[in-house]
Amino acid sequence: MEKEEAIARIVKVFQQYGYEGATLTRLSKATGLGKASLYHHFPKGKEEMAAAVLNSLNHCLEQSILAPLRGSGEPRERIRLMSIKVDEFYNCGQQSCLLAVLAIGESHNLFHTQIGCALNLWIDTLAQVLIEAGFNSDAARQKAEDAILQIQGSLVLARGLNDTAPFKRVIKRLPEYLLNP
């Protein structure tokens, strides 16, 4: 198995169980690789696996969510497209955010900087689009932070209630919320 395929399978374990719950047994089962083979691909163990997962997530975030925001077109259309991509990225609210899962517990100390950079990049990119839409930089930053807060909060609520309706509601309202003064 190629390392990239192993990472794709490992992502699901970290999303479901978090860093602490992503045991080598679970990781081995998910990949179909023995523990020795996992260490062959990731000599530093679970920490290296989580770092690889975060790198993969950052790449997906860039391609799926940030690229539409940086694209051409009117701010309204770019924000609408971001909302569609966020919905797809989180499987209509059925998939937990890996950044949120890894931001708690033991992994918080290990990956705090990497998680913060990813969230700030999303916020900064969205704020730039809002500035282009006519908001001042402070208002744009606050709206962008609030949008990410709504997305992340609705994902937690969707998982906790086993109901994706809150996430779907946030995604539906997000473009209007962001673009109205």
Rank of each mutant, 00 (worst) to 15 (best):
Y17W: 14
L98K: 04
A140G: 04
V86T: 10
L98V: 15
E4M: 01
A158F: 05
K12F: 00
R70S: 12
N58T: 02
Q152E: 15
E88V: 07
G116F: 00
Y17T: 03
N120E: 15
M49P: 09
P175F: 00
V13P: 03
Q95S: 07
R80I: 01
Q114P: 00
A147L: 01
N180E: 11
Y39S: 09
Q94D: 10
E5R: 13
C92S: 12
V101D: 05
E47V: 12
T113I: 00
Q150R: 13
C97E: 06
N55C: 05
F167A: 05
E4L: 06
L149I: 10
A139D: 15
D163A: 06
A139Y: 05
F14Q: 08
N58S: 11
E176Y: 03
L98A: 12
R169L: 12
A52S: 14
E20T: 13
V53Y: 06
L110S: 11
H108E: 15
D138K: 13
M82P: 01
L102V: 04
Q128T: 05
G32K: 08
S64T: 05
Y90V: 00
D138C: 03
T31R: 08
C60D: 13
E77N: 09
R78C: 02
D138W: 09
S137C: 04
I104K: 15
K85G: 00
L174K: 02
Q128P: 00
K85H: 13
P166W: 09
Q63A: 13
L57S: 05
P75V: 06
Q15F: 01
E4P: 01
S83E: 01
S83V: 00
V129E: 13
I104L: 10
K35V: 10
K29R: 14
I171T: 04
Q128M: 07
F135S: 14
L126Y: 13
R169K: 15
L66G: 05
G45P: 12
I104N: 09
R169T: 15
L61C: 03
M82I: 00
L66R: 11
I151W: 11
Y19I: 04
L57Q: 12
Q63P: 00
K35I: 06
R80V: 03
E48T: 15
A6G: 08
A52V: 02
Y19W: 07
V156F: 08
R80E: 14
E132Q: 15
Q94F: 01
S56E: 09
E145M: 07
G160M: 03
I171L: 01
A67M: 08
N162W: 00
A144W: 06
L54W: 10
A140T: 09
M49E: 12
G116N: 10
K46R: 15
S154D: 05
V13G: 08
